[in-house]
Amino acid sequence: MPEPMPPEPLLSGGGRVPEDGAIAATGMGGAMDLATAEGETLERAPAGPDGTGPTDRPRSLWSDAWRDLRRNPVFILSGLVILFLVFVSLWPSVIASGSPLKCDLAKAQEGSQQGAPFGYDGQGCNVYTRTVYGARTSVTVGVLATLGVALFGSVLGGLAGFFGGVWDSVLSRITDIFFAIPVVLGGLVLLSVVTSNTVWPVIGFMVLLGWPQISRIARGSVITAKQNDYVQAARALGASNSRMLLRHIAPNAVAPVIVVATIALGTYIALEATLSYLGVGLKPPTVSWGIDISAASPYIRNAPHALLWPSGALALTVLAFIMLGDAVRDALDPKLR
């Protein structure tokens, strides 16, 4: 049966990915679409070191990218914000004294004052302290979920792309299934039955619904990379599958995965807050921006500050990760050089 003829290698790796039909699903629900779209842009770019510079010293894609990044103000800015966030998540007590769980109802909804620059929320908790401590939850969930998704997705997708055949088709159909379920909806259904108070169910859910995205990207970029001459040469020289995968393909196929994972980190943080806002994500006494925003929304008329500060912190965090991903993508995309 004749395949639909794509006009140009639009969304597939070099136009040679045997993805049947013109399916070009851009993601799993609103929150994660950008990552996929950007990843696919990158996928088209020929992976691998792009030759030698004006000097004779050969430079790899990575050292080139690092040179670009160091001069990119967006990277520096978002990097600083992220370093600060990580610092705050590790040692929140350095910049916020007192416990986020210590609340005084007498002070409920009071505005900014000495010792509480962001005021007090509806329960009389110190909004500043809670916002600072909330960073830890968000960063933990984001980082762990991303690590899980990246590991799981790239191993499954990479192997499917490398070996092809039946497992590849099966995996592609399975990812199709996951893409058909809206993320927030899946989260509500799955997490509403969980009673645990820890962050693990939320992370587990994100890995469960997030891996197909990375797996698609990894599959595409492995398929592109394995058609390179040096991989064929390695095969001709009798290299084993594992050697080809680890030494030749993985280093040249990992860039799109890193970019998509960085951007996805931001969206996972937003997703955690959204689920917590809906009441199925994290549960008190865990301190989370999503929970605080949800708790503050009924008092929005009288105490908007209790809603605005955690929202601002959340938006800034997500922005920092998305900007970092953007900058890394620009640096790794040889087409833009």
Binding site: T26, D33, V184, Y277
Partner: peptide, 24 residues
Amino acid sequence: LIPVVTFIGTDIGALMGGAIVTER
């Protein structure tokens, strides 16, 4: 417009599912 149309098409399902938050 081709990539844009792809995006908007796949977004229809996401929008209807994502309406949970907006509708709340």
